[in-house]
Design a protein around this nucleic acid. Structure first.
Length: 109
DNA sequence: GAGCTGACAATAG
DNA sequence: GCTATTGCCAGCT
């Protein structure tokens, strides 16, 4: 079980209509400061494992994505389809939609 | 096989 | 409170 696999499980455990941060995913994956890799792992494994990468934003609730294949516009659209309100500035209200692993993600031991 | 890069976050000043 | 530096490790060259 590598950090990559944990990240995949955590991201896959994000409830519908909720969003989380890279720091939270990294923390649940066992690396409190491995937030950088979360994005990288998602970038390479999101489509491969069919992960809801769009539910992951930075700690400001802002869509950090700058990839040509995964633009903020795409993520914003996906979030809106989840029923999540996204500000015109691509900001998500973590106060309302923020998820910090209150459920299965803690089953990591 | 070794080094560099990378969807960020936390700590220190 | 804000700016600057360090840290994490998988994936790519």
């Amino acid at each position: 079980m590598t950090f990559k696999d944990k990240v995949i499980e955590v991201v896959a455990s994000i409830p519908y209509g909720k969003v989380t941060t890279y720091g939270t995913v990294a923390l649940l994956a066992g690396i409190p400061r491995g937030s950088r890799m979360v994005g990288a792992i998602l970038h390479f494994n999101a489509e491969r494992f069919d992960l809801p990468w769009h539910r992951v934003v930075n700690r400001h609730g802002y869509i950090s994505t700058n990839c040509a294949e995964h633009t903020r516009d795409i993520q914003k659209g996906l979030l809106e389809q989840e029923g999540i309100e996204v500000s015109p500035s691509f900001i998500v209200h973590l106060k309302k939609y923020g998820w910090f692993g209150e459920d299965e993600a803690i089953k990591n031991n």
